[in-house]
Amino acid sequence: MNFADWKNIAGLICIIVLPYLSGNLLKTVIRKKEIGQISHSETYLLGFFLVFLVQGVYFTIGHLVMKESFDALCDGFFIVTVALAAVSVVALILNIILTHKERKEPVYRQEYKKSDIILMGITAVILVLICLRIIGIIDYIRDDYILPTVRITLSTGTVNEYNPITALPYRVGLTTSKKIVTLPVYYAYLCRTFGLEPVKLLYVVLTLQTVVCSYLACLLFVRSFIKQREKLYIYGIFFGGLVLSGDYFNRSISARLLWNGYAGSTITTAVMLPYMTYLIVSCYRTGRMAIADILRILLVTATSLFITGITYGALLIVITAGATLIGCLITGHREFDEEDGRPAVMES
């Protein structure tokens, strides 16, 4: 294996693992007393959002305020990434120690039944099929500006100076709302730093990551109502089936997931929206909105600014949050909360 391959592998590990590590950093900050309140799925999602937020803040300040070149931005962000990973590892260790300490009595856990393992296997097969599907459509064009922006950023070494569609220098430029959308610059950073091919990074790696995160976010919402492990696996199997079959039309949500999973609008719709809905509904069901919940809502909203711009992302999330909150406030049903105010241990 040559050095370029090792760089590629390091890049893939960074993309896949860094969100989980970063999520532990947030988990330490917003730690709740109940064990398992922040599940591994939610930890990954929080880290997923945090990585996008950090890149957004860094590249926006670095480019718009400090007028740094692309190369300088990349070198600086590499240091930021390493620092974030290092602090996150410390947070992970701290979380493990604190979790162990808080478990003064053994927690009763259900064993995995044979049916659970079979369903888990089927879910994994569906995920592999989705992965193969994503790889199978790699040669098909997506009409967006993200891949061209990544390419033009890499080839010219500049940020937002060339029109990605025509490859000519801007005469006027971008709107302010789009100038802070640093997602393509972040992707270009990953390609430059880790030697990844833009097409494979966007169309395969990041798309698959978004599909998995969307599944985790939808699962979080559904877990508020489904407690049995078997039912959750069945949910996952049919979720996968819908994703596999849903791109019969190029504007359907499954098409957005499979074909444009790397796009900020897809991440906002497929990951942030269900997560925001879960947050609001779970706050209402527990009867309180703690500082930790507000921080998570702010994290999602702030992240959406840097991946879709001021107009679309934040607007859609605020509307959804408002609608969900109003809906929950109107219902006024509390008996369910008294019985199930604490998260349940997974049943089989």
């Binding site: 969307s214 559904v222 049919f238 979720f239 819908l242 359907s252 949500i253 929206l273 269900p274």
Partner: peptide, 26 residues
């Protein structure tokens, strides 16, 4: 105020399709 809003209504299909269909089937 935000012309782009007119083009994004199909994206809200995630919640009914990817959450509620598998939920109902389950």
């Amino acid at each position: 105020f935000f012309p782009v809003v007119r083009f994004y209504e199909p994206m809200t299909a995630l919640i009914p399709i990817l959450i509620y269909i598998p939920f109902g089937i389950t």
